[in-house]
Design a protein around this nucleic acid. Structure first.
Lengths: 209, 209
DNA sequence: GATGACATGTAATTGGTTACATGATTAG
DNA sequence: CTAATCATGTAACCAATTACATGTCATC
């Protein structure tokens, strides 16, 4: 038995279940939808498609076009549709490791100049505001029809998360200890941090289910 | 000039600014703190330390121990501290690409058996509940002292995000169209999804700041 | 004739994962 | 004697990023 494709490959299979598409179309359609929680670069899409075709999960056919360069459109094979449904037949999911560079900087924020920290918050809030706006439009667009409930649901969580981020920025701006000009001295926050490291529970690495 | 270290390397420099540590200690301390938004595997930590030492940003010294195997403790060099502060001197941050496998599954949820989808929501809610609990303890632990404000802030956003996820699960459970036994037929949701793909704006790929 | 959308990739590198290998020391 | 914790890594692999390369077609 063949091993299960990577998440990105499964994402592509899923997108192809919505409509047969070329690599280029896939790439923009991903950018319009799942990129919010599953970004993929163009070259990654092309590479994945080639591999999926080799495994016979998708089938490409050349399409001659008059008003644009020729393209290669991919459709799911029966086997590809099976693999997709296989994945969706289980309630399991990999707890994807979330990485956030901005939180990494916030964590060491005591070491930053107060003004710099403030500017970082501004940018974070602006970014979240853009996301909020984009996603709220998508949510409205999908309001109503039960066929788009699941897609709408993903946009809704993104929207709520953006709102959460905005509220968080505002809260920590309000509650932040009156900033001086200089970063906090290392000895001050390092000592406090070490207490945390003694007391904090280990983040559960991974649960198998 | 040497190129800026990777985010993971910077994270390690930051952790070492809190206290000199061995690779093993770093690994558990990361698990107690920044793993919530910047997870690192043990081997990754060891590899990064070796590279950092080669670049002379950290310095390792062998420590002989009586009641445990000997270890190698790392401290920041002057240059290492400079590189860390350099990074923190700018309000810029890379908009880290977020990936969530569970949202990927939700997006294609119309293709799932309704019961399976429901179980997936249960698990997601449970996971979020565990996170909520863990982080709320950490937030309480760090309440008060201004020295831990920034660290507490990161835990607070994690806490709020977990709460957001829980509320979202509850909301979509309430609003979900009455489920049948079978997944929705492909033609139904595919048609609706294609309308989205026509209308949705492209997610902005990346902003330079 | 230039620009921009359409279209498909390659190459080099980095980053990260999992599984494995090895061994000391302490508690039961 | 065994298991758990402390301790440090290697090897093989896979995923993903960035930059580059190439070219068509339609519009201004």
């Amino acid at each position: 038995m063949t091993s299960r494709p990577s998440p990105s490959a499964l994402a592509i299979l899923g997108m192809l279940s919505l409509a047969p598409q070329s690599g280029y179309e896939l790439s923009t359609n991903v950018g319009k939808s799942i990129a919010h929680f599953w970004p993929m670069s163009k070259s990654q899409v092309y590479a994945a498609l080639a591999k999926l075709e080799e495994e016979q999960l998708v089938e490409g056919t050349a399409v001659v076009q008059d008003h644009a360069p020729d393209k290669r459109t991919y459709t799911l094979t029966t086997e590809g549709r099976e693999v997709l449904d296989d994945w969706l037949a289980s309630p399991d999911y990999d707890a994807t490791r979330q990485r956030s560079m901005v939180l990494l900087k916030v964590f060491f924020g005591a070491r930053m100049a107060p003004d710099t920290f403030e500017q970082m918050l501004d940018r974070l809030r602006d970014d979240a505001e853009v996301t909020r706006q984009t996603l709220s439009e998508i949510v409205t667009l999908l309001d109503g029809p039960p066929e788009t409930f699941y897609i709408r649901a993903t946009a809704l969580l993104g929207l709520r998360s953006a709102e959460t981020t905005i509220a968080w920025v505002d809260e920590i701006r309000r509650t932040r200890p009156r900033p001086r000009r200089e970063p906090m001295p290392e000895r001050a926050y390092a000592a406090a941090a070490r207490e945390l490291l003694d007391a904090a529970p280990l983040k559960p690495t991974r649960r198998k289910r």
